[in-house]
Measured scan of single mutants.
Amino acid sequence: DETGKFLVLALYDYQEKSPREVTAKKGDILTLLNSTNKDWWKVEVNGRQGFVPAAYVKFL
Rank of each mutant, 00 (worst) to 15 (best):
K17I: 06
W40A: 00
T31Y: 11
V22T: 04
R48P: 03
Q49R: 11
L11A: 03
E21M: 06
N37Q: 08
R20K: 11
R48C: 09
D1C: 15
V57L: 15
F6H: 11
L9W: 05
Y56G: 04
T36F: 11
K25I: 07
F59H: 08
R20H: 13
D13W: 11
K17S: 10
K17P: 03
T3H: 14
V57Y: 03
K26M: 09
A54P: 03
V22D: 03
G27A: 03
E44S: 09
K42L: 15
Y56P: 00
K26T: 07
G27M: 04
W40K: 00
L9G: 00
Q15R: 09
S18W: 07
K25F: 10
F59G: 05
F6W: 14
V22M: 06
L60G: 02
Q15M: 13
D39V: 14
L33P: 00
F59Y: 09
N37H: 10
V8H: 04
E2V: 14
I29N: 01
K42A: 08
S35K: 12
G47C: 08
S18D: 10
A55G: 10
K5C: 15
Q49T: 13
L32Q: 00
Q49W: 08
L60Q: 06
N37I: 06
L30Y: 08
D28Q: 13
E2H: 14
E2W: 13
W40D: 00
Y56Q: 03
W40G: 00
K17H: 08
K5D: 07
F51P: 00
P19R: 08
P53D: 02
L32P: 01
T31K: 13
W40E: 01
W41I: 07
P53I: 13
V57N: 00
N46F: 08
A55K: 14
E44R: 06
K17F: 05
I29E: 01
A24F: 15
W41E: 00
V57G: 00
K25P: 02
G27I: 04
Q15F: 15
Q49S: 10
K25M: 10
W40Q: 00
G27C: 09
L11P: 01
V43P: 00
K58P: 01
L32D: 00
V52K: 02
K42T: 06
D1H: 14
Y12Q: 11
V22S: 02
E21K: 04
K42Y: 15
L7D: 01
L11Y: 04
V57M: 12
Y56E: 00
T23F: 05
R48M: 07
E16H: 08
D28M: 11
A10L: 15
G4A: 11
V8F: 08
L60A: 05
Y56L: 15
N46G: 10
N46D: 11
S35W: 15
I29W: 06
V45N: 08
G50L: 05
Y14H: 03
N46P: 01
N46A: 09
N37R: 08
G27Y: 05
L9S: 02
V52C: 06
V45S: 08
E2C: 15
F59R: 09
K17W: 05
E21I: 06
K5M: 12
S35A: 14
G4M: 13
Y14V: 03
V22C: 09
P19V: 09
Q15K: 11
S18R: 07
V43F: 03
K26H: 05
K38L: 08
A10K: 03
A55C: 14
K38R: 11
L30I: 07
A24G: 03
Q49Y: 07
V57W: 04
Q49L: 07
K42C: 15
K38F: 07
L7G: 02
D28H: 04
K5G: 10
T36Q: 12
K58C: 15
A10Y: 06
L33K: 03
Y14I: 07
T36V: 10
K38M: 09
V52Q: 01
T23L: 05
V52S: 02
K25H: 10
L11F: 05
K26D: 02
E2D: 12
L11K: 04
F59I: 15
D13M: 08
A10S: 04
L33T: 03
N34F: 09
N34M: 08
P19F: 10
T3C: 15
L33W: 05
E16P: 15
Q15E: 14
I29Y: 05
R20S: 12
P53Q: 05
S35M: 14
W41V: 08
E44F: 06
E44T: 04
N34C: 13
F51G: 01
T31P: 03
D1T: 14
Y12I: 09
K25E: 05
Y14N: 01
A24D: 02
F51H: 02
W41M: 03
E44I: 06
T31S: 06
D28Y: 08
W40V: 01
D39K: 13
E21D: 05
K38V: 09
D13R: 04
L33R: 01
G47H: 03
K26A: 13
L32K: 00
V45F: 12
G27D: 04
L11G: 01
E44Q: 08
V45R: 07
E21Q: 10
R20Y: 14
D1G: 14
V22F: 12
L60N: 06
Y56K: 04
Q15I: 15
T3L: 12
V22N: 02
E44W: 07
A55M: 10
D13L: 08
F6D: 06
Q15W: 13
L11R: 04
T23D: 03
R48S: 05
F51L: 07
K25R: 12
E2T: 14
D28S: 07
A54W: 09
V8C: 10
L11N: 01
Y14C: 12
K42D: 02
R20E: 12
T36L: 09
G47Q: 03
L32V: 13
K17L: 08
L7I: 08
A54S: 13
K26W: 06
N46W: 07
T31C: 13
R48G: 04
K17M: 11
E44H: 03
Y56T: 09
V52H: 01
T36R: 11
Q49P: 04
T23R: 04
L33S: 01
T23P: 03
G50N: 01
L32H: 01
K26Q: 09
T23C: 09
N46Q: 08
L7Q: 10
Q15V: 15
L7H: 09
A55L: 10
L30D: 00
K38C: 12
F59W: 09
G50V: 05
N34K: 05
A24M: 15
W40T: 00
D13P: 06
D28P: 03
K58Q: 13
L60F: 11
P19G: 08
Y14R: 00
T23W: 06
R48T: 05
S18P: 03
G47L: 05
S35R: 12
T31L: 14
F6N: 09
V45E: 00
K26E: 07
K5T: 11
L60K: 04
E21N: 04
F51A: 01
E21W: 09
L7T: 08
G4P: 14
F51W: 14
A10V: 15
A54F: 07
A55T: 11
I29D: 01
A10C: 15
S35P: 06
F59V: 13
G4I: 13
E2G: 14
T31V: 15
I29L: 09
D28V: 06
V52D: 01
V8W: 05
K26G: 04
V45Q: 05
A55V: 10
V45A: 08
N37P: 03
V45Y: 07
A10D: 00
K5V: 12
F51N: 01
Y56V: 15
K25G: 04
K42M: 15
E44C: 12
L7A: 05
I29H: 03
A54E: 02
L30G: 02
K26P: 05
T3W: 12
N46Y: 07
V57D: 00
L30A: 02
W41S: 00
W41P: 00
L7E: 04
K42Q: 11
V45H: 10
K38Q: 10
A24P: 02
V57E: 00
N46K: 08
K5R: 13
G4R: 14
L30E: 01
T31W: 12
E2F: 14
L33E: 00
D39R: 13
E2S: 14
A24H: 05
L9T: 06
E2M: 14
W40N: 00
K58D: 06
Y14L: 03
V45K: 07
E2I: 14
A24T: 15
T3M: 12
V22E: 03
A54N: 02
A24W: 11
L32R: 01
A24E: 03
Y12M: 11
V45W: 05
L11H: 01
D13N: 07
A10N: 02
